[in-house]
């Protein structure tokens, strides 16, 4: 009796190798790296723009991303994000990992997990805007071209992660 282990993933080196090739290909074709948080920024901008165009126009940050006669959703990163969702769905589907659930450590309740997920999301969203990119856009793609900004961002993310990991240990182990 062999139950398929739902947590069997690719060998991380294999995954990393393919990811590296993908970054290489992306740079070769488009001249820039991958990204993920950009699409979320675009979504926020277009939501605000729809709800209150006046406000979006007056805000110094939104107005940077609003172009006349052009939805801010129609850009490269948004389509790429759509692709991420499709790709992950296919991969998860093939491996039988699709299920609607809250994943959390058995020691905490799912409510606590969701609260922390929200806090983490808010912080990450805020940080990604300040640093102009997230782990994929700034750190990973930045490292591929030896960008100083990318390396510093990567060190800051993981350095802080290790520093504060102790305080969040209950959530994970």
């Amino acid at each position: 009796m062999k139950i398929q282990n739902k947590h069997t993933y690719w060998n991380p080196y294999f995954g990393g190798f393919l990811l590296g090739l993908l970054i290489l290909f992306t740079f070769y074709i488009t001249g820039r790296g991958l990204g993920a948080s950009g699409a979320m920024k675009s979504s926020v901008v277009s939501i605000v723009d729809t709800v209150s165009p006046e406000h979006a126009k007056n805000n110094a940050y939104y107005s940077k991303f609003i172009e006349e006669d052009k939805s801010s959703l129609n850009n490269w990163l948004v389509l790429e994000t759509l692709g991420i969702l499709i790709g992950a769905f296919v991969s998860g589907g093939l491996a039988g990992r699709i299920s609607l659930k809250v994943q959390h450590s058995p020691k905490i309740t799912s409510k606590r997990r969701l609260i922390f997920a929200l806090i983490g999301g808010v912080l990450f969203g805020l940080g990604a805007q300040i640093a102009r990119g997230c782990t994929s856009g700034a750190a990973l793609s930045g490292m591929a071209v030896l960008s100083t900004g990318g390396f510093v961002t990567m060190l800051a993310i993981f350095g802080t992660g290790y520093l504060v990991a102790y305080f969040f240990r209950k959530n994970w182990i």
């Binding site: 820039r32 993920a36 950009g38 920024k41 990604a128 102009r132 997230c134 856009g137 700034a138 793609s141």
Partner: peptide, 14 residues
Amino acid sequence: TVKKKKKSTPEGGC
């Protein structure tokens, strides 16, 4: 007046 040539440099990721 000559505008600086705008190269179509790719923009940022995230």
